[in-house]
Design a protein around this nucleic acid. Structure first.
Lengths: 182, 182
DNA sequence: CCCGAATGAGACGATGATGTCTCATTCGGG
DNA sequence: CCCGAATGAGACATCATCGTCTCATTCGGG
């Protein structure tokens, strides 16, 4: 009987990723519940989006932990990170575009994640694994962008789901890694 | 007196890229005209967005022509392409996300552009300049995504405008180019 | 089995955006 | 200079969505 809050959020993310202007009624239908019930769990659209942000941040943070990005070879850490973002990619794609639309640097948790990812790329640069002419800020930005692109491409059938991790990782790292020989 | 249609579209694109839900009134103000006048030129919001798509496609096509992507070294062609998308990057970022939201493969002009960019990457692969394990479809997707990421990063001040072309091109090509030595 | 809590369906007023319209003003070509 | 075309401001009805509310129904724990 009781509604699974996280399930609702996941359905909402999936729908909003495709159609950012979806109405509360559409979101409710997509989650398989009534509009009234949706309002009982999220006081309004803003609250829903904020909860969505929280879920995304929580899950991405979990992905960062699982990937143990602070350990071992930086390039491998990036590969593990991309692999473990697999189930979060949809929500990330939504939040990534959403964040462009509103003022940036607003969310505390997001800044914390950003710093962690940034640190990973900086570590890679300091260890000599990553190029220095591409800033770690840009590499971070590119990581988000490519994960989003990958998620969309999979969603629209332009990319096989099983290839997503490899395609994103190979493209990003191929550009980020320092070349032995040009 | 007469309103510059393209100028209105550019202002609209700039605003909508930041705030996709901007009202017709906001768009009109941003373009420096009255709401009534905006309606005189674009029968409705849908018509405006469609005109925006046309402008973006037209300008991107022009960028493809200017870059002469069919000529010379494929990697250099990609660099030229990214460089000449500089002034269109904002609109592209908007259209890229917009296209995710609506059903894909709908627009004729867009498919034509897609085919051209795709052909560029395929040519690079056939000429041995690009890796074969990353599909040309994915490289195309990644190009759009990185251009969008770059445009947003510049817009939000996270990336210097003068570095945009190089950052996008280096990251994309570094990943796309076949390595002599791993 | 039974009762309370949670849900779905739908009505309701409020709100904001839309598209159309009018009218006074302004611009620019002839 | 003058007249017509284009514009800006705003009024107006319409429409979609929102958030709240009610009520019948259903689910599940005790």
């Amino acid at each position: 009987m009781s509604v699974d809050r996280d399930h609702v959020l996941k359905e909402a993310a999936a729908l909003l990723t495709r159609k950012a202007t979806a109405s509360m009624d559409e979101i409710a239908r997509a989650a398989g519940i009534g509009r009234a019930t949706l309002h009982r769990h999220f006081s309004g659209r803003d609250a829903l989006v904020r909860a969505l942000e929280d879920l995304g941040i929580r899950q991405l943070e979990q992905a960062l932990d699982e990937a143990r990005i602070e350990e071992g070879d930086a390039a491998d850490a990036v590969r593990r990170l991309i692999a473990s973002t697999e189930p979060v990619a949809g929500i990330m794609a939504f939040l990534f575009t959403e964040n462009q639309l509103y003022e940036a640097g607003l969310n505390e948790g997001w800044n914390r994640l950003d710093a962690r990812v940034n640190a990973l790329f900086r570590r890679g640069q300091e260890e000599g694994a990553f190029r220095l002419d591409l800033t770690s800020a840009w590499l971070t930005e590119a990581l988000y962008g490519l994960i989003g692109s990958g998620a969309w491409a999979v969603q629209d059938g332009r990319l096989a789901a099983k290839d997503r991790t490899r395609m994103v990782a190979e493209l990003l790292l191929g550009g980020a890694e320092r070349r032995m020989k040009q």
